[in-house]
Amino acid sequence: MSEFEVYVLGAYPRSAQIRKAVRDYDEGKLTDLEFQVVLQREVAYLCGIQRGAGLTAIQDPLLEVQDIFRPFIESWRNVSVDGLLRYFDNNFFYRVPVFSDRPDIQRMVLTRRARSLRQIVPDYRIKMIVPGPVTFSYLSRTDIDKRELAHEITRIYTIELENASSYRIDILQVDEPFLLDIDAAPEHYDLASECLRELKRVFNGKLVLALYFGLPRGECVKKLNDLPVEYVSLSLVEYPERWLSILRATDIGDKKVIVGVVDGRDIRIETYDEVKRLVSKLCEVIGKERIGGVTTSTWLDMIPLSYAISKTIILGQYGLRLREELHR
């Protein structure tokens, strides 16, 4: 039987020390090395929290990341950043990527990241995230055709993945929140499918498509089935009934669902019963054998750090109980 996953969906918020270190580094008061020392100490701490909580895979806390696109933009040629734009329905803003031409790799992002995470957790499963090529392309500004750009971004990811293979990335999570946006259309799902197929060709680990922030609408719903992944992560936190009715009415093939049950954007701490109720409802709809695990509804970087840690710990506790109860 495959692993029942219990892991956090994404990045952690910065502590006061990290915020200060970032500020100092930007102002030239810290050297690269000094900054890395502060950063790695905090990364190790947050990896320890995840391990201690009994999570099945460690998520890189992504503390130095300003927004989901930035590390890649800063490591590629022909792309820069411009003004701030609202990131989906959040009171959080990303800098819009501007592609002047097809992107090209200057430095490896996943390799660097996997290497440094492996130093902290050499013998534990690790999860890496890439911004979905469709989301990346459609949230960028460029004269290049968006479809072509999505394929270009995918091409770079495939190079990254081949390069990082020695660091054993166990789970690759492809985040495509754009697919649940009100402007998403069936052709965006087709494009996502093409890109995911390309990634699957080079990545041998567990490939998970993460969908969050919204809901699939209209014609897009039917496209869920076509997505060529075995694992899809979606959240039952925001619109539980609507997601359940979508899943009731729509065939999503034999995909396993890693379900967001702990709210990554709210500080209220869920009870076990609430979480269990959500999972039970999903069981009724898709069957317990297709529940691939539990996670947070979103990344944890939009709540204060203390809550992000509490949520990690309850996720671990609840996840272990759910696994036992589901497989009894």
Binding site: R19, R23, Q66, D67, F93, M302, P304, L305, Y307
Partner: peptide
Amino acid sequence: IGDWVRIFDNMYFRK
């Protein structure tokens, strides 16, 4: 007035 939450980049506010 709560704890620090990010708005963008390294800009945080007390939510």
